[in-house]
């Protein structure tokens, strides 16, 4: 039986703020509120990476948030998609090239959908999530890794080790 078609009917969301000004977070919460009500599409804000399908990231990814973002990302079971919400998450926004930010989510983890706007409007976020669901439906169940990561994995994956290797590389990259 093919369960792929059910993926887009029940997207569970994990929302993570990597140093945003809370503008986009407010808009994401607005999506859950009665006016936009994304639970119509079966979406739930789980707050738990192990049970989520969509990772919605806001903020320009500060240096301190970088490692946490990676941990959360590796904790999510595949298939999963990442939606970067807001100008900061897409490219760093007004914080771009500051000493303490990574200039966007895609510098740390692979991003599938970019939602622009400062702050992104709820309609745009819903649109982004729907776009992400289309991508989610096509995705396989292989382990996804950040692009900069050169670790080779073969199933079953021990993610504790994987995380440590990725972190080594992440910190090594900063030093280099």
């Amino acid at each position: 039986m093919d369960f792929k078609s059910f993926r887009k009917k029940s997207p569970w969301i994990l929302h993570y703020n990597t140093g945003s000004c809370n503008g986009c977070d407010i808009e994401i919460l607005a999506c859950l509120a009665p006016k936009y009500d994304i639970e119509r599409f079966g979406a739930l804000n789980r707050g738990n990476p192990k049970q989520s399908d969509i990772l919605i990231v806001t903020g320009p990814v500060t240096k301190r948030a970088k490692e946490r973002l990676l941990r959360l990302y590796l904790e999510m079971p595949e298939p999963k998609v990442v939606v970067a919400v807001g100008a900061c998450a897409c490219s760093g926004g007004v914080f771009r090239h500051m000493y303490n930010v990574e200039n966007g989510v895609d510098k740390v983890i692979p991003v599938d959908v970019y939602v622009p706007g400062c702050a992104a409007r709820p309609e745009a976020i819903i649109d982004g999530v729907i776009k992400a669901l289309e991508i989610l439906e096509k995705k396989g169940k292989e382990v996804e890794l950040p692009r900069w990561c050169s670790v080779e994995v073969k199933p079953p994956v021990n993610r504790v080790k994987l995380l440590n290797r990725c972190l080594e590389e992440l910190h090594g990259r900063r030093r280099g």
């Binding site: 490692e67 941990r71 079971p77 382990v143 199933p155 079953p156 994956v157 993610r159 504790v160 995380l163």
Partner: peptide, 15 residues
Amino acid sequence: FTGTDRVYEYTCGEN
């Protein structure tokens, strides 16, 4: 469950 991935405990991303 040998064919299944192992993972660390959830701690809000903190180490």
